[in-house]
Structures are given as structure tokens and as C-alpha cells.
Design a binder for these strands. Sequence first.
DNA 1: TAGCTGACTTTCTTCAAGAAAGCTAGACCC
DNA 2: GGGTCTAGCTTTCTTGAAGAAAGTCAGCTA
Lengths: 158, 158
Amino acid sequence: MARGLDILGDPWSMLVLREVFFGNGRFEAMRDRLGVADSVLAGRLAALVGSGLLTRQPYGDSGRSRQEYVLTAKGEDALPVLNAVVLWSEKHLPAPSEQAHMFVLHRGCGARTSSADSCTGCGERLTAENTSWHSLTRTADPVPLATACPGKQIGTAA
Amino acid sequence: MARGLDILGDPWSMLVLREVFFGNGRFEAMRDRLGVADSVLAGRLAALVGSGLLTRQPYGDSGRSRQEYVLTAKGEDALPVLNAVVLWSEKHLPAPSEQAHMFVLHRGCGARTSSADSCTGCGERLTAENTSWHSLTRTADPVPLATACPGKQIGTAA
DNA sequence: TAGCTGACTTTCTTCAAGAAAGCTAGACCC
DNA sequence: GGGTCTAGCTTTCTTGAAGAAAGTCAGCTA
């Protein structure tokens, strides 16, 4: 557990993972969204890549220096940890505004779940593939989570 | 979620909570077990009490200056977060030794669960009351988790 | 009354976070 | 084809927190 916390226990690491799950894997996008210092973000990304939770992937136009960070299977498996934090926060921390709420939705049955790793509506196991997060501060509609390497499947290969 | 991570995201906070769940709520015991600096432990404990996850409770002999930290209902509800970290770590991080493994057990049916907040054997919801952790480095047998205020129930009253 | 112990608090040093600027390589523009 | 733009870092500097070690204090113990 201590070893797990070395990777996941850092506040920024979890927030970076959150952004990647939201499909927000580009350096600038994360920096702007999280308000984190460049050097810290660079360090956290390198650590998460080093720990095998993220991989780098060139995106958009041809071989330019533009990279996007995407989840590996190992990173995707951290979803219950993030869900558990979201559910605990929703239950116990007062939201600073109506917009600040965030929900975990199972796309299979559409239910809002109160479990970190299974749907309390239908019991199905939650994965990044069948889960959406709904954050009012972000978009009006729920966001399907990013899975390991969107588009082309690389997944556990790395 | 960011607010939740302000409290739970700190590596030491999670480890302190782990110790309290293990029934190890005394200052010296935690310091010895975690190898954390006194000043840092004192700060973390104060923060967790301030956030309402722990309360202080005198223990043993009469009104001496000896305190023990015990969970509140709010702190107890953080169990799924810790479970999720344990399960992820067990799945994805190599254990440095045979002894380093840790399991989450449901005492109701005795099954080892692979879900953070329900028993994968019987489906029952996991609470501190019906959950044991089994850490080989600690004891040979699984340890029933500490619940909100052992002995006298205070719980949500604070 | 002279320790001893548990639970801190203080002090000091070192390391990491935060802010701000600089660097680089390809894209775009005219 | 020279200038500008932009994404994705890297460097530098300052400030704040972590870590180590010693000090404090109240009550028990002998």
C-alpha cells in the first residue's frame, strides 16, 4: 500500500490521471486546467510514464514534437481509486457551488453509481469503457472516460 | 475531487488513516510504524482532526495527557479509497517480498474481495465493521478494522 | 524526589513546489 | 525563406514544507 501511495498518493498525480480520464491528455490543456507549474507537471508526467500508468503518443499532425499522454491498462485500473475519492468527496465535503458536483455514471444502464468499481444500478463492473464522469464545471453532458490508447488499441502491449 | 484530494491526497494522511483502521491510533505507535517525523505526524493528525476524519479520545488510565486517535463516520467512509489503493497495488505492483502482500477480507462470508466497497463473494457492502485487512508484515491473522470510536459509540455526533 | 513515558513543540537544515522566463522544432504566413 | 507562432518542455530562483534531533510538560512510578 505504501508503494501504491508512492505513485497514487501524490495529489498532483491523481489530478493528472483525472485529466487523462477526461480525455485531456495534452500538456498545455492539463497545465491550464490544473493551474500547476510547468516543471511540476513535467515531473509528474515523467513519473507516471515511468511507473507505467501513462504512455506518450504523438497526436494530430505528422511527426511534430506534439505528444499526448494516454492511459495504459495499469493506469486505467486506477479508476476505482479516483471514483472512490469522488464518491467520498461528494458525500462528505460541501460543494462550494451548485456547479462543483461530480457524478459517476454507468453508461450501460445510465445509473448514477455510489460504488467505486461496480454499478449500484445493475451490478456490472465499472471500467473506463463503460463509465462516464459528469462534472458541471466542465461540460453540460457526462463525459465518457478515455480508455487505454483511444483510437488504435495499444493497451497492455507496452 | 480536488477538495477531496486536499484531505486524502496527501501520502501521509492515507498512511495515518491506514494505521487508525488497523487500530494503531496512538502517536508513538504510528510514528514508529510509519517512520514519519514527529512534527509531520502531529501536523497530519491535526489536519485530519480538523477535517473531521478523526477525533481524539483519552485512553487507558485516567485524565492523563494520553490520547488516542479514532475514526469518525466520515473517516470510516474513506475505507473504499484505501481499499481501492490496496487492490490496485496488489494487482499492479510487484511485492518486494512474500510478506509484503495485503488482502481485503469480508468477515461476513470470509471471502477475499477484489472490489473496493462490496464483497465480490456475496455482494454485501463493505464497512469497517465487516472488513478485515490481512497484512503479513503485521500479524499472522487478519485484523478486524477499527470502527468509529471503539467501545463507546460517538460516531457522527461530533 | 528523581526519573520515566507519551504526546507533542521547537529549531534547523535540506529538498521539493511554485512562478517566470527561456529554449526548440516544426507549422504557418507572406 | 525569413519572421512569427505554438506546444512541450527545461532552467533558474524563491519560498514553503519535510525530515532529523532535541526540548517541553504532565502525570505516573519507585
